[in-house]
Amino acid sequence: MLIRNPADLVPSEITPRGVFDNRREFLKAAAGTTLGLALQPMSDAFAAEKLAAATKSPFSTEEKPTAYKDVTGYNNFYEFGTDKSDPAEHAHTLRTRPWTISVEGLVKQAKTFAIDDLIKLVPLEERIYRMRCVEGWSMVIPWLGLPLATLLKQVEPLGAAKYVEFISAADPKTMPGVSSRVLDWPYIEGLRLDEAQHPLSILAVGLYGEVLPNQNGAPLRLVVPWKYGFKSGKSIVKIRLVEREPQTSWVKANAREYGFYSNVNPEVDHPRWSQATERRIGEFIKRKTLPFNGYADQVGKLYAGMDLKKYY
């Protein structure tokens, strides 16, 4: 059953996060406007662009979303550096307009979408998802986006298409991390076609009611909530439908530690650390990690009969 009630309180009606988090500065700035000098900090506070109203989704978790400053300040986005504070610091150089996403390969009709057209393709949905990083920490993030299946339907995959490959931008001019050899650029991720078509898989264009911040993978990123975070490629420029399992960046970097599937699984340890528990950002006591990150009811059947220790 899909409940599609229009949201009674849409994220865009809430005070923008940037303003809320800086409310003291905002008040100070407001107090100073009589002098006309304090307009600068005020306009900065409004810098985050709001997105059109989004509908709520039954796939959203009821859990408390992680603080905006942590969601946007603690990121793995190696194109901007390997430290988790690097993306927030360096990603301002990324130019997200103009931006096109081409969907090609084994499809009836290859298409190239301008990002602004893609955002308007269907009404955006709010999806509050758990996000589990392979490093043992997790967050709850209110994404805004559209089902990946919606986009795939537009190009009509051929019967021979078995996998989907996601290719991220790799521009050494705007992405300082690309000049280091830490990964094989461009960042490539992949899903099996049925995983990609699963209603939980989305392309996110925003979070917290705002346009996706650069450090979170602007202007468009994948979100596959039952897999470790690195499976969700950021700043995607190309999506290819292919016959064979794509060679992903992390599999190329270390196939023993990062498998193609990388479903969240407390039973299968990373060779160097246990995956049994996780620290939810903002919490002190660690939680038990759930199979498929708590989405087992929805996605478990995709893997019926598969040895998840072998296909990790």
Binding site: D70, R279, F284
Partner: peptide, 14 residues
């Protein structure tokens, strides 16, 4: 001091 003034980032324990 960093812990007291909340300056150790999103994952202070790490």
């Amino acid at each position: 001091w960093g812990l007291w003034s909340d300056q150790l980032g999103a994952n202070p324990i790490e």
